[in-house]
Design a protein around this nucleic acid. Structure first.
Lengths: 134, 134
DNA sequence: CGTCTGAGTTACGTCAACGTAAATTCCCAT
DNA sequence: ATGGGAATTTACGTTGACGTAACTCAGACG
């Protein structure tokens, strides 16, 4: 299977469109744990899964630290009752944050549109004045 | 009139809920131009108008640099045809950016909700297992 | 054997918008 | 004159997520 394929840092970068720096940075932040064969890093299926979650987390607006905590909870032991519930809590919190953010954004958009209607009228009247002056 | 009232930095801070540091910072960035009487800064109606626009701009998600450019265009000379049109352009660009951002956010929210339904099922089934094990 | 490539480490740089601390100066009231 | 309370300047600190040198090391190739 290509499933347990072990990848070099370059393969990872190409596969996920990130830089080597990013992968090393994530390792330093304990988000990834590639195998160290000699000097080189080797990334397994596990790392790919984690990276996939990391990138998704970033799309969701989680910070790397939050993502690390979520990954820790996720890949931890077997009494995941409280853990998973906690994960769920964090995600729920994040969700309401995001919805609030969206609402703010919508409001800002509305205000800006209002401003721009103003600008339109301005432009139109100035255009008239301009033609009247010719 | 209270309109051409000249305000100290403290009055400004109280009126707009910002810190002195912020006002000095804006001056350093050439967003504000308070009168310098001796050592002190005195803020006029013009400064209040600009600050109002600055804070509004921030709510819209403009960077200070963008706001500075907009203010420069806005308060500039008298052939504002092109200038105002440019301002309008920039605002329009910013608007579409914001809408794109909102759409991304909405998508992320949807995805996250999907994940969380997963989490719910997980929790529910684990809860069943738990009770079955008692 | 030389060198080229790819990977590695270390560590400082970046960007935004201020916060914060230290030292100084200013005017005013006691 | 002497505090006391503003305001000032200068300049380093903060946060997050990497970018970007600079230098070393290990195989592979011709």
């Amino acid at each position: 299977m290509t499933d347990d394929h072990i990848m070099t840092i370059r393969e990872m970068c190409d596969a996920f469109d990130v830089t080597p720096r990013t992968l090393r940075f994530y390792e330093a932040k304990e988000l990834l744990f590639p195998i160290r064969e000699g000097q080189k890093r080797l990334f397994t299926k596990r790392d790919r899964a984690r990276l996939k979650l990391i990138l998704r987390g970033k799309r969701f607006g989680f910070s790397l630290e939050e993502i690390r905590q979520l990954l820790d909870l996720y890949h931890m032991g077997d009494q995941q009752q409280t853990q998973l519930a906690r994960t769920y809590e964090i995600a729920q919190q994040r969700l309401s944050d995001m919805e609030a953010q969206r609402d703010e954004l919508n409001q800002a958009i509305d205000e800006l549109k209002e401003q721009m209607r103003w600008g339109e009228k301005m432009l139109a009247s100035m255009d008239q004045n301009k033609r009247a002056a010719e």
